[in-house]
Simulated assay, not measured.
Amino acid sequence: MKQEQGLEGGCLCGAIRYRIEGLPFDADYCHCRMCQKSIGAVFGAWMDFKLPQVVWLKGQVTEFASSDSVRRGFCQQCGCSLTYRHTQYPDYLTLTIASLDNPSSIKPNYHIYTDNQVSWLTIEDNCKRYPQGRST
């Protein structure tokens, strides 16, 4: 990951904008079925922050409860997927790397839920792979 001051991002239509202070404490590719369906892509690329690192500049996400403990945030106007929030970890917020103005700024460190990776996708990187979630 490259160090950049004040990374910014937002949704497709511009109704929601945010700024990040510092770097994420982690970043990953997720191949789970919920991410695939909610994002509309064969995997998601996510970056994890402590809540105070995320400054909302404009608008707010609308959240969908995709399970008892997970909330997925999106723009109500354009439908852009922006956030993932686990209610058991209220001090953390996960954002889509693709929503950054410069998504090349953050590189994921590992793949999770690779048991659900689509068969026709070949990813040739050196990131560690976990068949399910990553145990800490």
Rank of each mutant, 00 (worst) to 15 (best):
Q5D: 09
Q5I: 13
E8C: 01
G10E: 10
G10I: 11
L12G: 11
G14D: 11
R17H: 00
R17A: 08
Y18P: 12
R19K: 09
G22H: 03
L23S: 10
L23R: 14
D26I: 01
A27N: 05
A27K: 06
D28L: 08
Y29Q: 06
C30V: 03
H31V: 06
H31P: 07
H31T: 05
C32F: 00
R33V: 15
R33A: 13
R33F: 07
K37S: 09
K37F: 03
K37G: 03
K37L: 14
S38R: 10
I39Q: 09
G40R: 08
F43M: 10
F43W: 05
F43G: 00
M47E: 11
M47Y: 03
K50I: 14
P52I: 15
V54Q: 02
V54P: 01
W56D: 00
L57D: 08
K58N: 11
G59F: 12
E63K: 04
S66K: 04
S67N: 09
V70F: 15
R72P: 05
R72S: 01
F74H: 10
C75R: 01
C75V: 04
C75M: 05
C78K: 02
C80R: 00
T83Q: 01
T83R: 01
R85K: 09
H86T: 03
T87Y: 03
Q88Y: 05
Y89Q: 14
Y92R: 15
Y92E: 13
T94V: 15
L95D: 08
T96H: 11
A98W: 14
P108R: 06
N109I: 01
Y110H: 13
T114M: 02
L121G: 03
L121I: 13
L121P: 09
T122Q: 12
E124P: 00
D125Y: 01
N126W: 05
R129H: 06
P131N: 08
Q132M: 08
G133W: 02
R134W: 01
